[in-house]
Design a protein around this nucleic acid. Structure first.
Lengths: 336, 336
DNA sequence: GCGCTTCACTTAAGCGCTTCAGTGAAGCGC
DNA sequence: GCGCTTCACTGAAGCGCTTAAGTGAAGCGC
């Protein structure tokens, strides 16, 4: 603890113990040395306050212990939740997270992913806006890439934690249909979707199956922009009786828009979200939403990237089922 | 672009141009070489797809281009916003952020800060739970540390972006007092406060000055836990007519608690938050809150840490003034 | 007692950069 | 034309580790 100005080096520990630096290096990693040597080394290291320099270690070993995390849009509150939880989980596993945000721009997404690779992260976990971009292939060749939400269609990724969006969409639309809604506005986003099929496809298919009258509008991730889109949806001549929002953040924009034009939720307009952000159950009214088990997604993604980094190529695709959280933002449409 | 398996090295660029590696190193950093050599080198580098290896560079130069970010509690949604924004701003300045979360535990905070130092970050930006801890001094000796919220009382920090919490508390309490509130519950948190005085102090002083009847309750950062505390406050025999919450996250808990026991906001209970999270203006009713200019805080903190890293020791303390956002969650108490 | 393996190390190369201390040529004043 | 500085570079050390290859001693079967 003494006010050591510079940090101790391996060599100093070696000199203190009379061993070679190699022996010390092995000892501290619990390899190839006798029990008592290891003990001696550990003690000397502790006394000198030695901590291995991760930079030198990375240069020599080729491993940085860093994992790159790339979000398509951290404007989305649920993505914030997701990514900071991924960071926490990685720290548990003695890895550091480098978190980057594409800010909703699919082109920037790949630039940042390359930047992460150039920064020498050991692996990548991405929740991409555009999982079908061809450049993912190039990246997945040079380091383990795990995707969350959708699989990278053209790349040999190290793994994927997929959302069963078909099931999610079905839950939401069936719920609304059951309540008697028919004219529904869907506020989508460039959102990861299940293998090779944009979530929009499911929306249209399910809409047709349930004989719904759907209007699909693209909404950006930020709450403020979503509000504007929701406003437009609610101002339509044949006003929809329900809003199905493809993220809770967008749904929050829906709340604001509804209130701005004096529409009661769920009386005048029902709203369904997607994700179940912690705030959603605190809104007034509480938000009906489709959620995924965040913790299990996180554990799976981290697990996948680490096994891939450690050279056990599994290439697993894990599909997560959705749950409908029925709360107070949905009800029978007034005319029904 | 050719499917280059391994990344090109400085030496390869040197060989391609017939220069020494030193010359190439200088050229690519725009130092000490003739214009035309620089151009030749850049071209060769581009053709080879050369990107300097940040690890090797870090080992040789002693700089990692990484800045550690440490939040006392990322449960707080505003802190999430703050830290992800800091990350974005740092990326603008060609630095990478390593974000760590103490999860509300003051002891863990210092452990993580040391871990960040051991990871060889060039500097640290912290928003600490306990800015008065002595161990900050030791850290601030070994690398530039900038604090947000409060100054590190015992440490020679590289700078601080302070919140004028006295003014913030005054704004909130005067607002409530003006509306006619007198019995007010204050839900605080181990929150950074202005130099050497916990924010609670201001609360009590201002409460006395305005002749208010205050009950101070400690609330954790997470929304769910805050809800429980708010519940307790509202269940008190002499129910307060207003809640002053020391973060918007806590205020969200207040909303949930009020709704749970059937109290109207602001009719039965007024609620004031602190921070102005993007969601706050979307709640129903919209949340009256005290906010700080997030963008300017971010720019200032990043600016401070970078000038310190670059060796220009300024040790500036920048104080940010608060603003009151009067919205719909506050009104006259019913009996008044 | 001999060759063989195993154990517990040591030696030394090397990861890919930066940087300090030269070095030769050109330019300059006088 | 001489010494001086400046310019544009080169050479080589070294950042602090890891790791492949090597070594000597001990242990083992037979």
């Amino acid at each position: 603890m003494a006010g050591s100005r510079k940090r101790a080096t391996l060599r100093e520990v070696a000199e203190a113990t009379g061993l070679s630096t190699a022996a010390v290096s092995y000892a501290l990693r619990g390899l190839q040395v006798s029990k008592e040597t290891e003990k001696r080394v550990r003690q000397a290291a502790a006394e000198l306050g030695y901590e291995a320099d991760p930079i030198a270690r990375a240069l020599a070993s080729g491993r940085t212990s860093m994992v790159g995390l790339l979000s398509g849009s951290l404007e989305d509150l649920w993505q914030q939740q997701l990514f900071f939880s991924l960071g926490r989980e990685l720290l548990h596993k003695d890895r550091y997270a480098l978190i980057l945000d594409a800010g909703g721009d699919p082109a920037r997404e790949l630039t940042l992913a390359r930047q992460l690779r150039d920064q020498r992260v050991d692996g990548l976990i991405v929740s991409p806006l555009d999982p079908s971009a061809h450049a993912w292939a190039e990246l997945a060749e040079s380091l383990p890439v795990v995707s969350i939400g959708d699989s990278l269609s053209n790349a040999r990724a190290a793994g994927a934690v997929l959302f069963d969006n078909r099931a999610g969409v079905t839950l939401a639309l069936e719920h609304l249909s059951r309540l008697g809604h028919q004219r529904i506005a869907v506020l989508t986003t460039t959102r990861p979707s299940t293998p090779d099929r944009p979530a929009d496809t499911y929306v249209l298919e399910e809409g047709a199956r349930l004989a719904l009258d759907l209007t699909v509008l693209a909404a950006p991730q930020s709450v403020a922009e979503a509000e504007a889109v929701a406003h437009k949806a609610l101002a339509a001549p044949d006003r929809p009786t329900a809003l199905f929002c493809f993220s809770d953040s967008i749904a929050y924009g829906g709340y604001a828009a509804a209130r701005a034009v004096g529409l009661a939720i769920p009386g005048d307009v029902s709203i369904v979200g997607y994700d179940d952000h912690p705030v959603s159950r605190l809104l007034s009214p509480t938000l009906t939403t489709v959620d995924w088990d965040l913790e299990s997604i996180i554990r799976a993604a981290v697990q996948l990237v680490i096994t891939a980094i450690d050279g056990r190529p599994r290439r697993r695709r894990i599909v997560k089922p959705p749950n409908l959280r029925e709360r107070d933002s949905t009800g029978r449409p007034r005319h029904a």
